[in-house]
Amino acid sequence: MTERVTVRVGPDAAVLVLGTGRDRVRETAGILGRETAAGLGPQVVLLPLGLLAGAAVHAVLGVGTGAVVGLVGALALLEVLACWLVSGWGELTRPSRLEFAPPDAPARMRFVRLGVRGRWRPVTELGNLRVAHRIVAPVDGDPRPARETFTVRREAARPGTAPLSAYEVPGDPRRLVEQLGGLLAPAGLAVELRTDRYVRTRGGGPPVLVPDPPADRPAG
């Protein structure tokens, strides 16, 4: 199991580490890239309408078409920057660690964001956890090996609580599931392992999910 997402037990608390700084930067960069594409895509599609609107404003008010197009471009840029600020800050303030105390039978927990510890809360507020395990197998003739990644997700115990999600990291999470299960069992919290298998497609397309085999029906 990768040590980038693991449980470390100390004398005063057990700590669930949710990835490294490199994971955080990689995830943040990916989100900002998607936000940029989502923000600029509609603007490119609507550019002809903006040019027509600029021509109409020029004809009616005498305002230069270049000024109108510049204003539309500035508004598009501000939209992208606003998305960057919201998404980037949300990603950077995602918890990097969870601390549980006492370590042998936790009764309270707290989040650590940007190196700042939050207040202690009852551990039952965490709710159950799900470890999503993703296996991507090669198609016939593909020399690349299979790739395994996983994330840790929180099934909120009460409405309005933001779900917890660790960064997707490579590795087999079964030992992590054992560690978390043993840590949270005294509090009555469950840790579920969900494995989904995918197969790569020829031509570089997205992997295809392999459906689970049907359950055997009882005889008779």
Rank of each mutant, 00 (worst) to 15 (best):
S96M: 05
E79T: 09
A67V: 09
G62S: 12
V177Y: 01
P138I: 02
R26N: 13
A13V: 09
R154N: 08
V86K: 06
L189E: 06
L77Q: 11
G66I: 02
L51I: 11
L77M: 12
P173Y: 11
T195Y: 07
G54R: 09
P211A: 15
R217Y: 08
G88P: 01
P143W: 12
R97M: 07
T124R: 06
G203M: 12
R144Q: 15
T6N: 04
M1L: 04
V44H: 02
R158K: 09
A132G: 10
R97W: 00
P211H: 08
G188E: 11
D140W: 05
P42W: 03
V169F: 07
D140P: 01
V136T: 15
N128F: 02
A157L: 04
D140G: 11
A190M: 05
M1E: 10
R110H: 14
V177N: 01
L18H: 11
P163S: 13
L180D: 02
G41P: 04
V60F: 07
R130G: 09
R175H: 11
L184H: 07
V136R: 09
T124L: 05
A132K: 04
G39P: 05
G203Q: 05
G50F: 06
A146T: 04
T36G: 12
V169N: 00
G73W: 06
P138L: 10
H133C: 08
R217L: 11
G62M: 11
G88R: 05
G127P: 10
L61M: 07
H58G: 15
F150C: 00
V9G: 03
L126P: 00
R113T: 15
E168N: 03
R117A: 15
R147H: 15
E148H: 15
R26K: 08
V45H: 04
H133E: 14
P214T: 14
E79L: 09
M1R: 09
P186C: 02
E155P: 00
V169M: 03
P173F: 14
R26M: 12
P11H: 09
I135C: 03
V69R: 03
E192P: 00
A55Q: 01
P106S: 12
L129P: 03
L40V: 09
G33N: 02
A29M: 14
G39A: 15
R130L: 13
L47C: 10
G62R: 01
R217T: 08
V7P: 13
V7F: 04
M109K: 10
V199F: 01
P48A: 12
L18Q: 14
